[in-house]
C-alpha cells in the first residue's frame, strides 16, 4: 500500500536520483547535470500522472498510508485540543477521536476517524473503523456543541463502520442512524471534510454537514469498489470498472452537486505535501465557518434539512 502502482516509474527515478546524490557528492559537474535532468523528468512524470488520475488510482491515493490523517490535521490547526473519551455506556472507541479545541481562536468541537500511522497505532485506532461506541460518542459531542453553541468540524477518513460481531450486538445500525439524527438536530455550523476515504454509512454518520468538502484525490462512496465489483460483476477483479461507474471522486461528486467544493492537493498528492494540504484544508474550513457563524440555530437546521432533501429531488 505504501507504493502506488502508477507511481512506480517515478519512484524508481527518485531512487536513482537519491543513489546519485550519495555516490556523486563532490565528484564533478556531470553528475549534478544528470541529477537535475532526472529530477525534471521525475517531476514531469509526476505531473502527468496526477493530472489525469483514474478513479481507481484515486482510490489508491486516498488510501495511501502516508497521507495526513485526522490527528495530523488536529495537531496542526486545532489549539488547546482536549480529547474527550467514551460513550458513557460501554467503551471508548479510538477509531473516532473527538473533543474540544480552538480553531483560529474560536472554541469548537472537532471529530474524525483516525486510521493510525504505524502497526501499533493502527491497531489501537482499529484502522479507522468505528464501532457503535464511537458513533455514540459523536452523538454526545453534538449535544455538547449544541448546548454550548460551538461550531463543529468533522474530518472523514474511514473504510467503513466496523463489521464485527460485538458491533452488531451493540447496535451498529442504531448508532449510525442516531448519529445522523444528532447532526440534523444540532443548531451550530457543521463543516465536514473528506480527507481520504469516505466509506459508506460509517462516513456519512459524521458528514451530515452544512458544508461538505473533499480533498482533490479523496473518494466518497456508498460501497467500496471491490465490494461493488464482487456483487454486481460477481468478481473483485472488476474493481476498476466499479470505481469508475460508482462516481466516487471529488470531481464527479462536485458535478453531481453532492459536495460543496474541492480542496486542492499539490501535484504528487497529500502524502508528498502534508503541510500544504493541511493549510489548504484549514483555509477552506475558515472560509466556510466565517460564512456560517452569523446564522441562527434555527436557520442552520432548516437550511441543512433543505440541502439534504434536495439531493435527488430535482432530477439533478
Amino acid at each position: 500500500m505504501n507504493k502506488l502502482d502508477f507511481e512506480k516509474p517515478i519512484l524508481e527515478l527518485e531512487g536513482k536520483i537519491a543513489e546519485l546524490h550519495k555516490v556523486g557528492s563532490g565528484d564533478g559537474i556531470n553528475i549534478t547535470e544528470e541529477i537535475s535532468r532526472m529530477q525534471s523528468k521525475a517531476d514531469r512524470l509526476l505531473q502527468q500522472a496526477y493530472s489525469k488520475l483514474t478513479p481507481a488510482q484515486k482510490v489508491q491515493v486516498a488510501r495511501h498510508q502516508d497521507r495526513p490523517h485526522c490527528m495530523d490535521y488536529v495537531d496542526a490547526f486545532i489549539e488547546d485540543f482536549t480529547p474527550l473519551a467514551g460513550d458513557r455506556a460501554y467503551a471508548e472507541d479510538y477509531a473516532l477521536i473527538g473533543g474540544l479545541g480552538r480553531f483560529n481562536g474560536r472554541p469548537c468541537v472537532v471529530m474524525g476517524q483516525e486510521k493510525g500511522h504505524d502497526t501499533e497505532s493502527r491497531i489501537k485506532h482499529n484502522f479507522g473503523m468505528v464501532r457503535p461506541e464511537g458513533y455514540r460518542k459523536a452523538q454526545r459531542l453534538m449535544e455538547m456543541a449544541d448546548k454550548f453553541q460551538l461550531p463543529v468540524i468533522t474530518l472523514v477518513d474511514t473504510a467503513g463502520a466496523y463489521p464485527g460481531m460485538g458491533a452488531e450486538e451493540r447496535g451498529q445500525s442504531e448508532a449510525i442512524a442516531k448519529s445522523i439524527e444528532s447532526f440534523l438536530r444540532t443548531g451550530v455550523p457543521i463543516v465536514s471534510v473528506v480527507i481520504g476515504e469516505g466509506g459508506s454509512g460509517g462516513a456519512i454518520a459524521i458528514a451530515v454537514a452544512d458544508r461538505i468538502y473533499m480533498l482533490e484525490h479523496a473518494i466518497y462512496s456508498v460501497i467500496s469498489p471491490e465490494g461493488c465489483a464482487s456483487i454486481l460483476w460477481r468478481s473483485g477483479e472488476y474493481a476498476e470498472e466499479a470505481a469508475t461507474a460508482l462516481k466516487i471522486t471529488a470531481q464527479d461528486l462536485h458535478q453531481l452537486k453532492l459536495i460543496d467544493g474541492i480542496i486542492k492537493e499539490p501535484i504528487g498528492g497529500a502524502h508528498r505535501h502534508k503541510d500544504e494540504v493541511i493549510a489548504n484544508v484549514s483555509e477552506q474550513i475558515d472560509l466556510a465557518l466565517k460564512d456560517l457563524i452569523p446564522w441562527s440555530p434555527d436557520q442552520l437546521i432548516k437550511a441543512r434539512r433543505a440541502k439534504f432533501l434536495a439531493f435527488g429531488r430535482n432530477g439533478l
Partner: peptide
Amino acid sequence: GARMQEGMLSLVQMPRTIIAVE
C-alpha cells in the same frame, strides 16, 4: 441496503429518510 447503482445518491438517502422521520 442502499442501491449502489445510484452511487452516493443512494447513500444520501440515509439522512434524507431520517429528516422525513424528524
